[in-house]
Amino acid sequence: MDDDAVLFRALSDATRRTILDELTERDGQTLFEICSRLAMKHGSTSSRQAISQHLAVLEDAGLLRTRREGRYKFHHIDTRPLRSIAERWPTREEPVP
């Protein structure tokens, strides 16, 4: 699968987009924090394992970076892959007739 396909697949899921929204609001969360925020703010009933799988898809697409600190793994949003979308379909200033 090419990079764009991986990126679009990662963005196609509502839960993954919500995870990115939460990391935009508060970057550098652990799996526990992400699961808690999704449950409390969005009523998510997804298991910890399901959220972990969503995080892996986001990481494979380059939308997420992780860092370990002792026993904890922190997740950080990385929007650089989204530039390929903006470059592929640039915004035009002139109105469309």
Rank of each mutant, 00 (worst) to 15 (best):
D3R: 12
D3S: 14
D3C: 04
V6T: 15
L7W: 04
L7D: 07
F8I: 05
L11I: 05
D13H: 13
T15A: 07
T15V: 09
R17G: 01
I19F: 03
D21G: 05
E22H: 06
L23N: 11
T24F: 14
R26Y: 05
D27T: 02
G28D: 04
G28E: 03
G28P: 05
G28K: 02
F32M: 04
F32L: 04
I34P: 03
I34A: 06
S36Y: 04
L38T: 07
A39P: 00
A39V: 00
M40K: 13
K41C: 05
K41T: 02
H42V: 03
H42A: 09
S44C: 12
S44M: 05
S46I: 00
R48D: 14
R48T: 12
Q49S: 15
Q49M: 12
A50C: 03
I51C: 10
I51F: 05
S52A: 14
Q53R: 15
Q53K: 14
H54L: 02
A56T: 14
V57I: 09
L58N: 14
E59F: 04
A61D: 02
L63R: 06
R65A: 01
T66Y: 01
R67T: 08
R67D: 02
R67P: 01
G70P: 02
R71M: 08
K73E: 15
T79V: 08
T79I: 11
S84E: 10
S84G: 03
A86F: 14
E87F: 04
R88E: 10
W89C: 09
T91S: 14
R92N: 05
E93G: 08
E93K: 03
E94H: 11
P95F: 06
V96C: 01
